[in-house]
């Protein structure tokens, strides 16, 4: 998921760094209001939790594993400001101390994962909580949807960055990239959503007072707009960004044959899924996600890309809900899983 140096050009990277600095300053300010002088130890432990959660891989499909981004999860548990701050600190530490994610791309990564992901996740949760019951399963459902939406939008953040500062003009239109990334990230988002939902549900059952999104006054003061409108806006925004934008932005599509995709799979097979946003990985996971849709959108029927994106989102939502409900029941055994997908926890 981490963008490295050289993918986005200097000026755009710098502009994003400036935006990140300003928004982080705001987050620090608001986080202090939430936690006062408990900020450093509490947020530090939460950041350690997010870091630890990101290090644990989970299976997305047989042979493919992903890891949490944690934006929506953090926002639900500790609020948007502390959440954004914690995810940002994780990213800074990963860039400086673990050399993960380019130094010059730090602003880009913070903007996508820490700021966009957290903010969107929080807004969706707040909106949905107006409709759902204020209990463990309600907040679990809300955080599931919020995770999917926030992961998809974080990927769209990258598309925007590439549009603004990508060095190479592509034959594939931004619409296609956008749709492909949205499709893949809907899948990743479902994985993230299921885990985030169970995590939050567990916390909410034991200590509901620790779930920021369940605290009464916060919610009512944070949201002034009418609830129904907010939910609709949230879902609509997800659909627009995942599919609608690609519909309008789609230029003449060009061939993207399966051989390049397969070549990519081989290239990447050795690595863990450390980055979900790179185009190669996207292509690879997308193939696994459901190639008929991918082919449908990209194979060149003018104007259908956006539709494919929307369909992709809707279907993945449906699958996600199915998995979510499935996971709530006692799981049945008997299906063999490939040993390669065993994760290290």
């Amino acid at each position: 998921m981490h963008i490295s140096n050289g993918i986005i050009n200097g000026p755009v990277s710098l502009a994003y760094a400036a935006i990140a600095v300003i928004l982080l300053a705001l987050s620090i300010n608001r986080a202090r209001q939430d936690l006062s002088d408990r900020l450093a130890p509490m947020a530090g432990l939460v950041a350690a939790f997010i870091f630890a959660a990101q290090m644990l891989n989970f299976p997305v499909l047989p042979g493919v594993s992903g890891h949490l981004l944690g934006g929506a999860l953090a926002a639900t548990l500790v609020g948007p400001w502390v959440g954004a701050l914690c995810v940002s600190v994780v990213l800074v530490v990963q860039a400086l101390i673990f050399a993960d994610g380019g130094l010059s791309a730090l602003g880009l990564n913070i903007a996508n994962m820490a700021l966009l992901g957290t903010a969107v996740g929080y807004l969706v949760v707040v909106g949905l909580m107006k409709l759902l019951p204020r209990n463990a399963s309600g907040v679990g459902t809300a955080v599931f949807v919020a995770s999917v939406v926030s992961v998809i939008l974080a990927s769209q953040g990258f598309v925007l960055q590439y549009y603004l500062g990508g060095d190479v003009a592509l034959t594939v239109g931004y619409g296609e990239i956008s749709a492909a990334l949205a499709g893949v990230h809907a899948l990743i988002g479902i994985g993230e959503g299921v885990i985030a939902a169970i995590t939050v549900t567990t916390v909410a059952k034991v200590r509901p007072d620790l779930v920021y999104a369940l605290r009464g006054q916060r919610l009512t003061t944070a949201v002034t707009a009418s609830p129904r409108r907010l939910v609709l806006v949230g879902i609509f925004a997800a659909l627009v960004l995942a599919g609608g934008v690609s519909y309008f932005a789609s230029s003449a599509p060009d061939g993207l044959d399966a051989t390049t995709l397969k070549g990519c799979t081989v290239d990447e097979a050795t690595g863990e899924i450390t980055g979900g946003q790179c185009i190669a990985q996207t292509a690879k996971e997308h193939e696994l996600a459901g190639s008929w849709l991918g082919d449908y959108g990209i194979s060149g029927i003018e104007g259908t890309t956006g539709v494919a994106g929307v369909i992709g989102v809707v279907i993945t939502f449906a699958i996600g809900l199915a998995i979510f409900w499935g996971a709530r029941r006692r799981r049945a055994r008997g299906e063999s899983a490939p040993s390669t997908s065993e994760t290290r926890v």
């Binding site: 509490m42 630890a52 299976p59 885990i195 985030a196 995590t199 939050v200 200590r207 620790l210």
Partner: peptide
């Protein structure tokens, strides 16, 4: 995934 994620919830509680 369920055990993993509820473990994660417990981990958050312990962290907090």
């Amino acid at each position: 995934i369920k055990g993993f994620a509820s473990g994660l919830g417990t981990l958050f509680l312990r962290a907090f």
